[in-house]
Amino acid sequence: MSTLVLVLVTGVGLGALYFLVASGLSLIYGLMHVLNFAHGVFLTLGAFLGWEVASRIGATGWPAFLLSILVGGLVGTAFATVTELALIRPLYERHIEQVLVTVGLAFAAVALFEGIWGSDPIFITGPAWLDETTTLLGARIPNVYFVLMIAATALLASLVVFLRYTRYGMIIRAGVENRAMVTALGIDVKKSFTLVFAIGGSAAGVGGVLAAHYTGYVSAHLGQTLLIFAFIVTVIGGLGSLSGAAIASVLVAVLQQLANYYLGGTGDLIVVVALAVVLLVRPRGLLGRRPA
């Protein structure tokens, strides 16, 4: 019983991490039809710079941890914003090329990170509490999972509030449905392109710092590994659907953890099988809109 609780709770925690990456991907795809391969490097840079700051002011203290999250978020935001303005915007409406430049950016950035921080993982430390466990229904859950869940819940809540109650949120929701009509109402939809990149980047940057604490290290490939799972999550959840991404993040991660514990560590493969099944049964994903 306690094992099952452990598996389920860690699954939800991992799902929270996926959501930090997938939410941005999903928003960006939904509004701009851009598959953002560079999303993983936003995360990686957030993790590296977050760690650089934390390690300078005493990595085991809470101030360093909180500051590193802030730094990660800011770095992710800045990186993503610059990416949108410098690389995506000049290729307006050329979706394939937009995908290609993000591929190129990811390719180049990973190599640059290796040049700066080396190709071996850098093991990191944080507040001791993160490594301790809390007993829940007999299962000893590492505290880092709770931090992930809190972060993802806070992100989801603020995204929902933003999308539902602000004018920009309204523009984004309308743009996901029908971008041309938004411009035909006199609204400059490009501003919201930059905005979704910035939001996605900040979530990814925060996700990077937390992912580093979750795995215990930072490496140049940290983001790209998570990115593949985030892609799977967004396809299963339904491309462009935020709530779909949230649900699929948890489902996929729980499934993955279950398979890892009970089916001999086959979690990664089960996830791909799940993707295949969803595509065969429901190609548009759980909550995706019917293709036009």
């Binding site: 309204m170 929701r173 309308a174 449905e177 009509m181 109402l185």
Partner: peptide, 17 residues
């Protein structure tokens, strides 16, 4: 071409310039 997932009020609010 109304925005199906937005309310009537939101559809109108978006158009206000």
């Amino acid at each position: 071409e109304v925005f199906a997932s937005l309310t009537v009020a939101e559809n109108l609010a978006l158009a206000e310039r």
